[in-house]
């Protein structure tokens, strides 16, 4: 829907109208590089999974960090969230943070329960 009025842009509106960053225009080649990088990280992950015993306590954090790197690479660049309006970030991260927080808390109570 739209409006006809000239006053459409009051000062307040500007706040929410953060113009798109213009650094966002990645070239196709850059995307290809990123994809190759992600493939390499996946390969490292798989390799690590065969070294559970050698890595000991390092294994889990290493794997989780690699997972997060992949996760946020896709979110930031492929999904463009890093350069996009912050509204999109707010909506998505709200869900993400709630999900992580709430479910980890729930799983923790099971830990106490079984203990």
């Amino acid at each position: 829907m739209s409006t006809e009025t000239e006053n459409a842009t009051t000062d307040d509106e500007i706040d929410f109208r953060e113009a798109d960053d213009h650094v966002d225009h990645w070239t196709d080649l850059q995307f290809v590089y990123l994809a190759i990088g992600l493939a390499i990280v996946t390969a490292i992950e798989v390799a690590l999974s065969y070294m559970v015993d050698d890595l000991g306590a390092l294994f889990l954090p290493l794997l989780l960090i690699l997972m997060l790197i992949k996760f946020f690479s896709v979110v930031f660049y492929f999904m463009h969230l890093k350069f996009d309006n912050r509204w999109f970030s707010i909506l998505f991260y709200m869900g993400l943070v709630l999900a992580v927080g709430v479910y980890i808390a729930a799983l923790l109570t099971f830990q106490f329960f079984s203990a």
Partner: peptide, 23 residues
């Protein structure tokens, strides 16, 4: 296509839906 934020309705809805899918 005027919106208060200048953003597309569809894109906002999609991100919101994805946030919901996280749960």
């Amino acid at each position: 296509h005027y919106t208060s934020t200048g953003l597309s309705n569809n894109k906002l809805a999609m991100w919101l839906f994805l946030g919901s899918e996280c749960l």
